[in-house]
């Protein structure tokens, strides 16, 4: 492999590799946000972080797919009649995880709670998007932080409601496969929402400090991608759980 050792200005006309950022092209300019190390432009950093985020979302998508697969697999098998206990009767009882008899179907979870949580996560994503648009337009930092603050409120509300839903479920984890999978969905959603709330808190604090002024709106775009993904995955789980009892 031959190399030359030169600064970038001498390299015009060369095949570019992945180093095409150094000439300032692309939609992004450096701004108030730390653009990266001393060798890194804002565009470069954005390019890297976007790819990282998409890959992580890809991994999380597989996690989601396997959750949904589990739901339909166990629902279809209905082993021992204990998907949701539809066949459990006094004459032919099933047994729960502690060996107690189950003589009637397991109650279906009220979809209202899950729908509210999905709506809250969608609203949170929408307000992150508003924050991004404000940053992109070059609005005052109060405006960017304001939208981010509203998004954070919805994220925290979603977390709180998800915890509340655990308290009001009509079943517990030991009540068969439907109950197990439903609670797994809830746990997974809660973990994602807490992560989202962490990121949302960062967005709000940093926006308040003016970190997204001066053309670094693309950092908010990354958070928006994540928020939209959380909203999508939450909604998918809600739809599956609500429609396929």
């Amino acid at each position: 492999m031959s190399i030359t050792t030169t600064d970038h200005d001498d390299a015009h006309g060369q095949d570019d590799g992945a180093h095409g950022d150094d000439h300032g092209h692309g939609p992004v300019v450096e701004g108030a946000e730390n653009p990266g190390g001393p060798h890194e432009t804002g565009y470069k950093r954005d390019q890297k972080e976007r790819l990282m985020l998409w890959l992580l979302i890809g991994g999380d998508l597989l996690f989601l797919v396997l959750e949904v697969f589990t739901w339909f697999y166990l629902r279809t098998l209905n082993t021992s009649g204990l998907w949701n206990g539809a066949q459990c009767t006094t004459a032919s009882p099933c047994t729960d995880g502690l060996g107690n008899p189950i003589t009637s179907p397991i109650a279906k979870a009220d979809p209202k709670h899950a729908i509210i949580i999905a709506c809250l996560s969608i609203l949170a994503a929408a307000f992150v998007w508003m924050s991004e648009l404000a940053a992109k337009k070059g609005s005052a930092k109060r405006s960017v932080a304001g939208w981010a603050g509203i998004a954070l409120v919805f994220m925290l509300a979603a977390v709180a409601w998800q915890i509340y839903q655990f308290q009001v479920l009509p079943f517990t984890t030991i009540d068969g496969a439907y109950a197990s999978t439903y609670e797994f969905f809830m746990g997974s959603t809660l973990a994602h929402l807490i992560l989202m709330a962490f990121v949302g808190t960062g967005l709000w604090i940093r926006a308040g400090k003016g970190r997204y002024q001066g053309g670094t709106w693309y950092r908010v775009r990354l958070i928006r991608f994540f928020a939209v993904w959380i909203a999508v995955s939450t909604t998918v789980l809600v739809v599956v759980a609500a429609l396929f009892y």
């Binding site: 166990l74 098998l77 209905n78 021992s80 009649g81 995880g97 502690l98 030991i174 109950a179 999978t181």
Partner: peptide, 16 residues
Amino acid sequence: TGTSFFVPEMGGSQWL
């Protein structure tokens, strides 16, 4: 926590 993903007598499946 007592879920039953892999416990057949409680609605789960070891094939999962």
